[in-house]
Design a protein around this nucleic acid. Structure first.
Lengths: 341, 341
DNA sequence: AGCATGTGCTAAATGGATTTAGCAAAGCGG
DNA sequence: CCGCTTTGCTAAATCCATTTAGCACATGCT
């Protein structure tokens, strides 16, 4: 109970050396002239006492705390958040850093609060994560630590980690083409504003660009483009139902898995089989995608990798301003016919 | 750039007082004999300089850091985690605390690491969160701060926050009964080991107890109990399909939403309508539940509230050892017939 | 006047590490 | 043997806020 923590002074005393020596040895300074015996004595003493440095004391002196702040607009609202956090967490753990998680709800006042709270704690870096990829508002405070934008961008902070949406968009189309589907492809979830990058961020508009370019390259056009302003299952359901009244598509290219989910429901009700009658490809690799029957083939959002990349960039000694585009993996399931060899 | 942070000494200097005075005033000490003018001068100086205390320095002196650690086995694997984290985060924010999130994967070595890292940082409390409710292993380290178990229990630390599973179990049955369903109810997801509390924690076994008791109270018995060892959609699907070959239930009581999801698929394929032909109730209030058609009526796991309660307990001045059972809300959707008035 | 009490404030110690500046002894060259 | 460098190590300052101990002056009471 009453046992106080072991301090560096205790270690030094047991080793018969000064705290200076102990400190230098334990922090592994390179240019020190301390003898091998001293090293051994200090390490032994530290080990036998179970010494753990007091991070606050160290932070006070060095202005480094081996911790980073993960500031996001929403952590639970979207299922994406936990992937980003998990990835960031594991990279932080590898780098022997600890992660503060802060949520702002996108409210400027809370954002300011969050940044100040983090800075008060001498964090070694800030990650601003956006759950809805977009240009992120970053409070106009003096920030004297590295910043990485995650799943979003900011004019002030040029280093950002984003999914490689353009390539992802292309892949979705290529998947259809290589499954032998070359006509009656319907785009589900078109949205002019998003496509122009007005509503959400550029990232989604890049997904559209990838899709358009790949279609053009394959010499294809969509049989229809179904628009909606929100990518939720019921929109997918309604749009697909309406579609089926007038035409019978060969494939649905869905802008996300939840739209696809709704489409499955409408197809199921109409007694249309997947993938024999209608094939589907989608984006996100939501948990949902694996629950569907047949499993939904989808271009995954690489959240974990994005999260860990963000931390790596943040802590890397030389950080080059750039957008780090993380590959969107193809997750093959059963919603495409197995046609290609 | 080169501007250093404002320190308490700066504030004191501007106010024309000692740092002692400044400290006492800013920390709001009650028994101080400093004059109202002194208070004003210090507050004005602090405000005009934008003073923010250095948390490390304060932590060093007071051994309190206004931060807590959230140590969980998994953060992303289950969709539950983010609810718990979010709830904890918001309660922490309210209490002006910051939250470190640490993931251990349930590995003892990482658990030890996590606890030590947290303790090194003078956290004011530890939350051990289990994503799979169970008796949690807590590393056998000297922990000199409050601990709250979240969604799990530990012999060493008696304060825990759990869902009120017994009541939840009862409610699911009562929902069926009050919908006028009194026979041909099938239990989906029975598992003897879980029911006995062997595999998972007591919490699930309490859910079973609630279900059994409510059935008994209503004078009902299950028409069948379908067992499986894993509550994933495909199990729900397979079991329901098999069931439908031999009998036609009036209702399915599913142990979680993913099983129910699988059941929906099997029912849909068989052309059976919900809720007219078969009604469903389930547990969790997964995101899924709202996507289904009709929406799944389910007994929700109150993750956010659990998370915030855990933090409140942790930081409350007097913490009474007890299990805090958080109410599991009934989330009404369309999978039950509207019968009751 | 003399003494206790109260008021308003501060000097200095403290927490635990890092870091600067520098000391003492040994080694070396001539 | 003298002066210079190298080796091996340490005293003390430092980071910044909190807190203990206590000073100087005013007031009240007898």
């Amino acid at each position: 109970m009453g046992k106080k923590r072991v301090t560096l002074a205790d270690v030094a005393r047991l080793a018969g050396l000064s705290t200076t020596a102990a400190s230098m040895i334990l922090t592994g300074r390179p240019d020190t002239r301390l003898s091998p015996e001293a090293h051994k004595k200090v390490h032994d003493a530290a080990a036998s006492l179970g010494y753990r440095p007091n991070v606050a004391a160290r932070a006070l002196r060095t202005d480094k705390s081996r911790s980073i702040a993960f500031i996001s607009d929403y952590v639970a609202t979207t299922r994406f958040a936990s992937g980003l956090i998990r990835g960031a967490l594991s990279a932080a753990e590898q780098a022997k850093h600890v992660m503060l998680v802060l949520e702002t709800g996108g409210e400027p006042a809370r954002e300011i609060q969050a940044v100040e709270t983090a800075l008060d704690r001498q964090v070694d870096g800030l990650i601003f994560a956006a759950m809805r990829a977009r240009e992120v508002f970053v409070p106009d405070l003096a920030i004297n630590v590295p910043v990485v934008m995650l799943n979003g961008t900011s004019a002030r902070f040029p280093i950002s980690v984003l999914p490689a949406e353009y390539e992802g968009g292309r892949r979705a189309v290529e998947l259809l083409v290589s499954s032998g589907i070359t006509k009656d492809i319907v785009l589900l979830g078109h949205n002019a504003k998003q496509e122009e990058g007005l509503f959400r961020s550029e990232t989604i508009s890049r997904r559209f660009m990838g899709i358009r370019d790949a279609m053009a390259d394959a010499g294809l056009t969509f049989a229809a483009e179904l628009s909606c302003w929100n990518w939720e299952p019921n929109f997918g359901y309604d749009l697909t139902r309406k579609l089926l009244k007038t035409q019978r598509p060969r494939a649905l290219l869905c802008l996300n898995d939840r739209l696809a989910f709704g489409a499955y429901q409408a197809l199921g009700e109409a007694g249309i089989r997947t993938p024999e009658d209608v094939a589907l490809v989608s984006f996100d690799n939501d948990e949902l995608a694996s629950y569907l029957r047949p499993g939904l083939t989808t271009i995954g959002l690489p959240h974990e990798e994005m999260g860990s990349r963000a931390v790596e960039l943040l802590l890397a000694p030389s950080r080059i301003p750039q957008a780090n585009l993380i590959d969107m993996p193809v997750v093959m399931r059963g919603s495409l016919p197995r046609n290609c060899s």
